[in-house]
């Protein structure tokens, strides 16, 4: 096949168009369109009604009613977000908690992925399975399991007290430390898997060559292994960082009342205060913060897919 042939879009039968149309339409309706609605409602005002916001569109009322309702839109909710310190503090602390946890996950995940890649071929399927298995078990259960371990009269404190390492229980549950532990624990497989994939593909002869030339092994690791595993590191870090910013379950169950995370703020705004327009505005801003990492992640995924294909 020559170059021109590849570049030209192929002719498609009706069936092939349908193949594209069905998932496209589904995602458009249930993924993209809802964002437009969120954006619309973020410009609306709170009301004591069902649904609890005005204006609502009713296309049956005609064009005039439609344009009238447009004039009722305002940026009020966004102004409100800048005025109340709770919101921007939540954003800042979400991003910083997610960044710290991502770094800690990398710190713990790298040696695991590295150990897996260096293990004998026959161990690898089992090790891989062991990393994937927790990923299949319920997220909620895994977070819940930590409550029993971390609380004041929990298993960790009991162990440390009986060993005589501490004289009074450590307060870990309901602090940011517990949130870090929860995020690292829950997202570890997401980081280890892509990292292992790129470490496993690494050409061992490069390291042998470096060794033959008298390079100490730590230096070979730093100069060869680390740079070549970078795509895996980046993919893994995105997979941890992006969802962690909007995490709700972990800060809610493990964090304290002073643990501000935007996912929790949004939840409270929606379910407790029933303020749909403000929670929509919170979601829009969160999306704006995440749009850059998401686009970067996607480009990287595409690049990796092309390399494989």
């Amino acid at each position: 096949m020559d170059e021109v042939h590849v570049a030209a879009p192929p002719r498609r039968s009706l069936g092939a168009w349908l193949l594209i149309a069905v998932p496209y339409f589904w995602l458009f309706l249930f993924f993209l369109a809802p964002f437009l609605i969120v954006f619309k409602i973020s410009l609306s005002q709170t009301a004591i009604a069902i649904p609890p916001y005005v204006p609502t569109f009713d296309l049956a009322e005609g064009w005039q009613a439609f344009t009238d309702s447009l004039s009722e839109f305002s940026l009020e909710n966004y102004v409100w977000l800048t005025e109340d310190a709770l919101y921007w503090k939540s954003y800042v602390s979400s991003v910083s908690i997610a960044a710290v946890s991502t770094f800690l996950t990398l710190l713990i995940g790298y040696p695991i992925a590295y150990g897996m890649a260096r293990s004998p071929q026959s161990w690898r399927p089992t090790l891989l399975m062991l990393v994937i298995l927790p990923f299949w078990t319920s997220f909620l259960i895994r977070v819940y399991a930590w409550i029993g371990i971390l609380k004041n009269e929990g298993l960790l404190n009991q162990l440390l007290l009986s060993l005589g390492l501490i004289s009074e229980p450590l307060v870990i549950l309901n602090t940011n430390l517990a949130v870090y532990i929860g995020i690292v624990y829950s997202y570890l497989p997401f980081l280890v898997l892509p990292l292992y994939a790129s470490l496993e593909r690494l050409d061992g002869t490069l390291l042998e060559a470096a060794e033959d030339l008298g390079c100490p092994s730590w230096k070979a690791f730093w100069k060869i292994t680390v740079p070549l595993s970078l795509p895996g590191v980046i993919a893994g870090c995105f997979l941890v960082f992006i969802p962690a910013v909007g995490e709700f379950v972990i800060p809610d169950l493990l964090g304290g009342s002073d643990t501000l995370m935007i996912g929790k703020t949004l939840w409270v705004e929606f379910f407790n205060n029933r303020d749909w327009p403000v929670s929509s505005a919170v979601a829009v801003i969160l999306l704006l913060i995440l749009v850059i990492p998401i686009v970067l992640f996607q480009n990287q995924q595409q690049k990796m897919a092309e390399k494989e294909g």
Partner: peptide
Amino acid sequence: MIFAPLVMPEVILGLSLLLL
């Protein structure tokens, strides 16, 4: 639209679908 939901915070997906 395929890759974004993989990393999209669940609160956003949930809220947007509810509003739909």
